[in-house]
Design a protein around this nucleic acid. Structure first.
Lengths: 207, 207
DNA sequence: GGTTCGATATATCGGTTCGATATATCGTTG
DNA sequence: CAACGATATATCGAACCGATATATCGAACC
């Protein structure tokens, strides 16, 4: 997954390790990457020909290893991006979302809905745990779970917005305009009140 | 950190691996633990004498390894819990919060405030990145960051509530009354100010 | 002028965790 | 009773984390 993130960033512009680290932490998903995985991954990518070192304006004693993505690397990038099969874990989703512009709208929607299903399931288990646990849990565990439920609900609402926006795009791209006004676009909508989440979500897909 | 979580759960009652896995995923921080780390950790704890196997209702089926915490394990638990030195990363904080009842109120407040500082810093970098990025970022990255900022703000507000509740307890301490943590305070919505970080914050830009 | 200091930059080591998978038993249902 | 899903334990290799070592650069400070 680090490979995917690195390749995606190098697609925009060539960088050296330290810059990659900053971009990974700050802008992209703001999830901390250890040098203990960044540099080895970078070297691994280099050895398999997905990236290459750039020696240009070295000047004086500057020891910077600037990397550039190769065509092989571009291909690898799209393979990894398409491989949404194994998508659990927060970070993986974030990284993929960050490179959504390289995916077709339908693929985006598929990914967003899968994520939504996952969060909905999690919310279900949390709420089941909250309601079915008579005085077994202490205050702090309870606070933790309640906050978790709240955050998850907000994440779902956010996903709903993204999905809606994506549908608007896909709608006017393929099918003809027909009774799908969907005005505002990416503003806050989808006030979810259905806290009851047992076995909804129609259309289960096998994957 | 898995050690801490396991020991804390075994402190409540003896369990076998699968039950631990469920408790870890569902109630405690609902963060998925792989069996590839759970079982080895369990065995490691066994070998170093922090937990021990319990063979009571073996008899039939008998493929359950029930573990019980030892006195050595209890000591280890408190050591690990106190070692808040290395506290970055979501999960570590959650696990510690789940076992807050074993910490003194001052220690709790210290941990909560450290977490708060961390989140405040992160929020700062996100917002700096958001405002200082002249159209370099695409829609999706931007959405990601905005949502991240929002979530972080809510986390901070939640922390504020917890800190406030903790202060109330600590304030009326002095009496050994086995204080039960102020049930009234865990309902979100509190003032959020006292930002001792950078001055630039609080855009209130309606999503 | 020198030197302390923090940010930049690369690298590696040991240990932990992840993801996938293999195996077997139990409980239920058709 | 066979099929099936949930329970339960286990292990492997690869990825990843946290800490640490090293070195250079640009300022700041006396």
């Amino acid at each position: 997954m680090l490979e995917l993130a690195i390749l995606g960033l190098l697609k925009e512009r060539s960088m050296h390790g330290y810059q990659l680290s900053k971009r990974l932490t700050d802008t992209l998903g703001f999830w901390r990457v250890s040098y203990g995985s960044l540099y080895p991954t970078l070297r691994r990518l280099d050895q398999q020909g997905a990236v290459e070192k750039v020696f240009d304006q070295v000047e004086v004693g500057r020891r910077k290893n600037v990397y550039r993505i190769t065509e092989k690397g571009e291909k690898l990038f799209f393979e990894l991006l398409q491989d949404a099969n194994t998508e659990t874990g927060e970070d993986r989703f974030r990284v993929r979302l960050a490179f959504f512009k390289y995916l077709a709208p339908e693929a985006r929607i598929r990914l967003l809905e899968r994520r939504r299903t996952f969060l909905e399931e999690r919310l279900g288990t949390i709420e089941a745990s909250l309601s079915g646990d008579r005085d077994g849990t202490d205050t702090y565990t309870r606070a933790l779970m309640e906050h978790g439920a709240e955050s998850t609900e907000q994440d779902i609402a956010w996903l709903d917005d993204l999905i809606q926006a994506e549908r608007n795009i896909a709608g006017r791209a393929t099918t003809k305009a027909k009774g799908k006004p969907a005005k505002g676009g990416t503003k806050r909508r989808s006030k979810r009140s259905t806290t009851r989440t047992k076995g909804l979500r129609g259309k289960e897909r096998t994957t």
